[in-house]
Structure formats: structure tokens, C-alpha cells
């Protein structure tokens, strides 16, 4: 199967048809709010991804996301500008009460959303049974990183694209693309989750709220910051995550990016707080057969969205024209004010 042969879902009545799915490298951009979506589109997004303001999506933060009405308006707005809307319903339904998740899928289909981004097998089954024309993307939350796993999702549920976990090298992605009958989407910039996504329980352990079921990693209700003289500390639940002196950049209060003391040494035991920046790897990722580049950051502002989408739009266009890619300018937006190429080019301590 090639990307050009993949069918688009039927658009809602009176809605202009979005551009066809093509093999051109697609820039998939975050939209935490309707204003951020407009900023992403204005800055050059090919697609935007967003979610509903409830537990059905993995960015369930206060004040963020879309109501069903806002989602329908957003889809109409994007389609008028030839931009696709991919809607994340990528948390795992609670046993016995999948109603909110089913309703989210129904709403996307009714509003003419271009794809639902789903992780849960039961929800994939519901979507492909109830809405066979709704295009399905496999969320990174499914942590599908092997050809056998991905083939299962494609063959059983008709998944058209898989968002790859951030644990693969470029060479591994190239090998994978030769073995699977669907598109791949990879993260190119933004916050870097270093765990097996959809399966991490660190935040659940500390707060009792699950990123995978309630949609919030390090929920703000459990985060506390404290100024002590020049030092600034962050806590998640009962755990001290970090304590930095004046002037030192402060990362997000996630356990995986925390600084802890072990064997007498204090360090970022799991991972350094750094943002992924794979803009210079766009050429090899394209060579590896990747279809779409995803920018992380639905929880960020429209200022971030504008700046990052513009920079990566320029990078993707430069690559398409065979020009060099300018990798500067995004440092100030990065967690810890540092960036990494993540697992794409693995180096180990």
C-alpha cells in the first residue's frame, strides 16, 4: 500500500475537501487551543492535531483543548485552508465506562475530522466497526515499535499511520518502514518522553493520576514550586523533583527529568531535561521513508506554536528544495534550554 492510494474520510456536508494524502513530508503541528490551531495554520502547518477537553486525550490540562463545538469549528476552519485535523483520543478507556471515548470518536466522524489518533485496542475496534470511513492513526501511546506489532494494527483495524515511539534510531526506522504496510510519523521537535509511552507509571505512582488513563503526566494539581532564598525547588506529590540555584534553567516537574541522589552522586538519573530537536535529521528521516514529522507541544502557547512551526516549515521546505537546514533559533523554547537528537542518534553515558 502506498500513501497515494490511501483513502481520505468523507468530509462533512458543506465542508471543502482537504488536500489528498500524499508522499510529501507532512508537518503535523500541535494545537492545544483554537487560537494555537490558527497560529499553527498561519505558520505553515500541513496538519494540526488536537484533542477534547476531557480524559480522552493525553494532554488533559486545565484550560486546554477543545469542546465538541470548538472542534467542529476548528475542522471547518482548517479545511477551508487546506489543512488536515487529526484528533487525539489517545488515552485508555476505564474498564466498564468507555462512553466518553466512544463519544469522542463519534464526534470526530460527525465533524469530518481527517483522522483519529488512537492507542487502545478496544477503541480502535469501536472506531473501525462504527465508522469504517474514519482514518485511524496509531498513537505513540500504543508504543508500537516492531513490525509485527504494527502489522497487527494495520491488518486488524485498518490503521493507516503509526506514530513511532521515541526510542528508535534512524536506521531502525528505515528498516521498519520496509516491513510495514502503513505510513510512519515521527517526532521532530519538542518535549521528549523517555519512557515506554502509554505504559509509564512514574506519574501515577507519585500522584495517583494516570497519564495513560486520566491524560495528565505530572498533573498541575500535584505540582508545587517553592522559592528558598535564591534556590527554586519543584515537587510532584511528596517527591522533590528538582532544586536549582538562581539563574539555572528549570525543567518540567516530571519524575523522569528529575535530579536524584544515588550512590552519593546527584544527577538526572533517568534522562537530562532537554527538548528533542531532530531538524537536522530531516533528510535522513525522509530517506528512511517517514511520511510525517510531528511537533510536540499542545500544552505550549500559541507563541511557541508560531515560532516552532515557522522554523520547521522552513526546514522542511529547505529540504524539499535541496537546501541546507538552519537549525538555530529554537533553543530558548526548549526544556532546560538544551536540545538533543534523542534516540535517533543514540549515545549512552
Amino acid at each position: 500500500m502506498t500513501a497515494a492510494t490511501l483513502a481520505s474520510p468523507a468530509p462533512a456536508a458543506n465542508t471543502p475537501a482537504p488536500r489528498p494524502w500524499t508522499k510529501k513530508l507532512e508537518l503535523v503541528c500541535p494545537a492545544g487551543t483554537p487560537a494555537a490551531m490558527r497560529a499553527a495554520i498561519e505558520a505553515g502547518a500541513d496538519s494540526v492535531y488536537c484533542g477534547f477537553a476531557d480524559e480522552t486525550n493525553a494532554r488533559n490540562f486545565p484550560g486546554l483543548n477543545f469542546s465538541p463545538t470548538e472542534m467542529a469549528d476548528a475542522i471547518a476552519y482548517a479545511h477551508k485552508r487546506n489543512v488536515k485535523v487529526l484528533v487525539a483520543v489517545n488515552t485508555f478507556p476505564r474498564a466498564g465506562s468507555p462512553g466518553s471515548w466512544h463519544k469522542a470518536i463519534d464526534t470526530i466522524a460527525a465533524a469530518g475530522g481527517d483522522a483519529a489518533i488512537v492507542a487502545d485496542i478496544g477503541l480502535l475496534d469501536y472506531a473501525c466497526e462504527k465508522h469504517p470511513k474514519l482514518r485511524l492513526h496509531l498513537s505513540v501511546q500504543a508504543a508500537a515499535a516492531s513490525a509485527d506489532s504494527i502489522r497487527y494494527y494495520v491488518e486488524r483495524f485498518g490503521v493507516k499511520r503509526v506514530v513511532l515511539p521515541r526510542v528508535l534510531t534512524v536506521a531502525e526506522i528505515a528498516a521498519l518502514n520496509k516491513e510495514i504496510p502503513c505510513e510512519t510519523e515521527v517526532f521532530v521537535f519538542g518535549g521528549l518522553c523517555v519512557m515506554a509511552e502509554g505504559r509509564c507509571s512514574l506519574s501515577s505512582y507519585a500522584t495517583g493520576c494516570s497519564p495513560n488513563m486520566n491524560g495528565v503526566c505530572s498533573p498541575p494539581s500535584h505540582v508545587a514550586y517553592h522559592q528558598e532564598g535564591g534556590a527554586f525547588s519543584s515537587r510532584l506529590g511528596e517527591f522533590l523533583i528538582n532544586k536549582v540555584p538562581a539563574g539555572v534553567p528549570m525543567p518540567y516537574p516530571t519524575l523522569c527529568k528529575g535530579r536524584f541522589t544515588a550512590n552519593g552522586e546527584t544527577s538526572h538519573i533517568f534522562e537530562d531535561p532537554a527538548s528533542l530537536d531532530a531538524s537536522l535529521l530531516i533528510p535522513p528521516l525522509a530517506e528512511a521513508g517517514v511520511t510525517a514529522l510531528k511537533i510536540e507541544g499542545r500544552q505550549r502557547s500559541r507563541s511557541y506554536t508560531d515560532a516552532v512551526v515557522r522554523a520547521l516549515r522552513a526546514a522542511v521546505d529547505a529540504h524539499a528544495r535541496g537546501k541546507p537546514i538552519d537549525s538555530r533559533a529554537l533553543m530558548s523554547l526548549s526544556e532546560g534550554a538544551t536540545t538533543t537528537r534523542g534516540a535517533y542518534q543514540k549515545t549512552w553515558r
Partner: peptide, 17 residues
């Protein structure tokens, strides 16, 4: 919307309690 709150937080230009 000219600044990103998280970026101001990372850089310590903004503090929240």
C-alpha cells in the same frame, strides 16, 4: 501571546507559586 509561558519559566524570567 508574544511570549511562551513555559519558555519564560524554563529561563526563570517567570516564577509561579
Amino acid at each position: 501571546g508574544n511570549y511562551d509561558g513555559d519558555a519564560l519559566f524554563f529561563s526563570r524570567d517567570l516564577s509561579v507559586e
